[in-house]
């Protein structure tokens, strides 16, 4: 089947989708957006968290056909989305363009990348600064969930953070640095308001 939907503000079309495919599979394997991760595919880890019409969901549990005509935000669009929000641009990403389904080959990404890019969202930058990233496999899902928390609750308590992130497993960090990162992002967000 064919599925048309919007990802990170851009119209996308996927063809020849098997009806049993998940949104996660379509994002990763058909649209060249592997940022959302495939850790459990049973809704028990949160690594595939995306926002579907603004709501954080496990993309592994959304059938591809269910996203027809809907809007999806993934980690790849998070910086732009947060930037627009900070600029008062609301929830959707402007500048929609038509993307081609089927991106090029992913390449091993271990090459170093200079840090401190000015284009990251506050939550993304805070995760780097606080040491909340180790293997990084849980990171995209956590970022989407944490960013949505800070959108709803600008100054969350520790208990609020823990509850909001209780659907996102991390096996590397013991979560302490993740808590630090969300606190840091909230504090920075407050400074700029």
């Amino acid at each position: 089947m064919r599925v048309n939907f919007t990802v990170n503000g851009r119209e996308q079309r996927a063809d020849d989708v098997w009806e049993g495919e998940s949104l996660l599979y379509v994002l990763r394997e058909r649209l060249g957006l592997p940022g959302s991760k495939n850790a459990c595919e049973q809704g028990e880890c949160g690594s595939c968290t995306v926002r579907l019409d603004g709501v954080p969901v496990c993309s592994c549990l959304v059938a591809a056909g269910q996203v027809e005509g809907r809007e999806v935000l993934t980690v790849e669009g998070l910086a732009e989305y947060a930037g627009n929000r900070a600029a008062g641009g609301g929830a959707s990403v402007p500048g929609a363009a038509t993307g081609e389904a089927g991106a090029g080959a992913a390449r091993p990404g271990t090459a170093p990348h200079p840090g401190g890019s000015g284009e990251l969202s506050p939550v993304q930058q805070a995760f780097i600064d606080a040491g909340a990233v180790q293997c990084g496999f849980c990171t995209p899902g956590l970022l989407v969930a944490a960013d949505e928390l800070l959108e709803r609750v600008p100054s969350p308590s520790d208990a609020d953070i823990r509850e909001a992130l209780s659907g996102n497993l991390c096996r590397c960090t013991g979560y302490e640095k993740i808590l630090d990162a969300v606190r840091l992002a909230a504090a920075r967000q407050e400074e700029t308001v």
Binding site: L33, P34, E76, G109, F127, P140
Partner: peptide, 18 residues
């Protein structure tokens, strides 16, 4: 050094190969 790629979703894990 891989932090930025990991927070933007660009870091290519073994399951991301295509």
């Amino acid at each position: 050094p891989d932090g930025t790629l990991k927070v933007t979703g660009e870091f290519a894990y073994s399951s991301d190969m295509w």
